[in-house]
């Protein structure tokens, strides 16, 4: 068959047009029915937040206690790569002057020496990571404000890691599966290499009516979780009765993790 350049272009144009048919069909085929039915026991809120009572943690907790970290990392199949360079962590501890840089002075640093501060994703009300993500692989849930990750959409550009002012995000530099040292939790996905991950406020547990794993694991009740939109919630009561701090409030991200010191 003889074909000219013009004909070839015409046919490829029509083919390209055909490729757009599927998204169009999707738009018209949409229905209002929910895609999944919610568990009636699910914990629901409009504005989840956490209050970390460091005083309780230090005074009542055992020295070197890592219950919250171990519980979280086991539930979420977080690997233990064994190097600072490629470390993956959802919740961890660091010194006061590192968690609250710029707010340290010689004396408070000395008083707090050796005292661990708990750090995790702040689930910001204005999350910079969500603003910068080019594929919406990280997004803020409209119903309750949890900042989530879609591990299957992330292209691994790591723009969110540059955007996060709290160092809350970890990247899977290598295949993490051989490094999962806890018993595999079959109810939560493992990750592939090349995607970013972080704390998800245990969205998968809230959906089943369970509190976040770290909150549940803390025997001294240093971690409290609740709905800021509900004036009777445990977090609102704590915030009303205590002076609290947030990390880097000057950046306007509106963190939703509060600290009692």
């Amino acid at each position: 068959m003889e074909t000219s350049r013009r004909n070839f272009l015409k046919i490829s144009g029509v083919c390209a047009l055909g490729l757009t048919a599927l998204p169009v069909a999707d738009v018209f085929g949409e229905s209002d029915l929910p895609k999944a039915i919610k568990n009636p026991q699910a914990l629901t809120g409009q504005h989840w937040a956490m209050v970390v009572d460091m005083k309780k943690c230090w005074e009542k907790g055992k020295e070197g206690c890592k219950d919250c970290i171990l519980a979280c990392h086991a539930v979420h199949n977080v690997p233990d790569i064994g190097s600072i360079k490629e470390e993956i962590k959802w919740i961890w501890t660091n010194h006061y002057e590192n968690v609250f840089p710029g707010q340290e002075n010689e004396y408070n640093v000395k008083n707090l020496e050796g005292r661990p501060f708990i750090a995790l994703c702040n689930h910001c009300t204005n999350p910079p990571c969500v603003r910068v993500c080019p594929t919406q692989a990280t997004f803020k849930r409209p119903e309750d404000g949890i900042v989530m990750m879609d591990f299957h959409r992330c292209i691994g550009c790591r723009y969110c890691m540059a955007g996060c002012p709290y160092g809350a995000r970890s990247f899977n530099w290598r295949d993490p599966r051989p490094f999962i040292k806890t018993e595999l939790n079959m109810r939560f996905p493992t990750r592939e290499r090349g995607v970013v991950e972080k704390c998800n406020f245990c969205a998968e547990r809230l959906a089943e009516g369970l509190l976040p794993a770290c909150v549940e694991a803390c025997k001294v009740g240093a971690l409290s979780f609740g709905d800021l939109a509900d004036p009777n919630s445990v977090v609102r009561k704590l915030l009303a009765s205590h002076f609290t701090m947030r990390r880097k409030p000057e950046l306007g991200t509106q963190p939703n993790v509060y600290y009692i010191v």
Partner: peptide, 26 residues
């Protein structure tokens, strides 16, 4: 250089599939 930096290069076209105007990278 952008492609070699991606953790998941085969998902590159997600940038077109889910265009996100609030991202400067887009």
């Amino acid at each position: 250089f952008i492609i070699v930096d991606l953790g998941k290069p085969m998902r590159l076209l997600n940038v077109l599939l889910y265009p996100t105007p609030n991202s400067i990278l887009f």
